[in-house]
Amino acid sequence: MPIKNKLYRMALRITANPAEAEDVVQEVFIKVWEQRDSMDEIQNIEAWCMQMTKNRAIDKRRLRYNQAEGLEKAYGLSSDNHDPGRQAELNDAVGQVKVLMAELPDSQKMAMQLRDIEGMAYQEICETLDMPLNQVKTNIFRARKHIRSKLLQLWTIK
């Protein structure tokens, strides 16, 4: 599986915006190209790219939130307006899981993404997220536990 898609999924998990995620991957690839002469000094290029993707995606999302917050204040928009796309997702079971995952804290969201979607070993996740092993395992455990309890709630409501 080409690394570009792996980086894209990671960026998309954080930004939740396909266009922004694509921009992030493009920026990362340009950076790799610019630094091709010093690639020998980087031990794990894939982990390095993933870290860069994570940081840039977080920056992009932060920038968007700040701009949106500014607009809301300027025009008196309320933030509790329901997004119709999100409402549609909530109506379908797989969409509900997508929303549940999106609502997780970043550290849990990223750890679960790398384990359950990218199929990475715990040690690789530690390197990518720059996080100790026990913290990675705790994050994955909490993320799955949260989703399980939410699924149970939704199931009993039905």
């Binding site: 898609n5 998309l12 991957v25 199929g119």
Partner: peptide, 16 residues
């Protein structure tokens, strides 16, 4: 649990 694992499998196929 089906939606959870279906979502994970779908996401694996997502790409640029």
């Amino acid at each position: 649990y089906q939606p959870l694992f279906r979502h994970l499998a779908q996401e694996q196929k997502r790409g640029l």
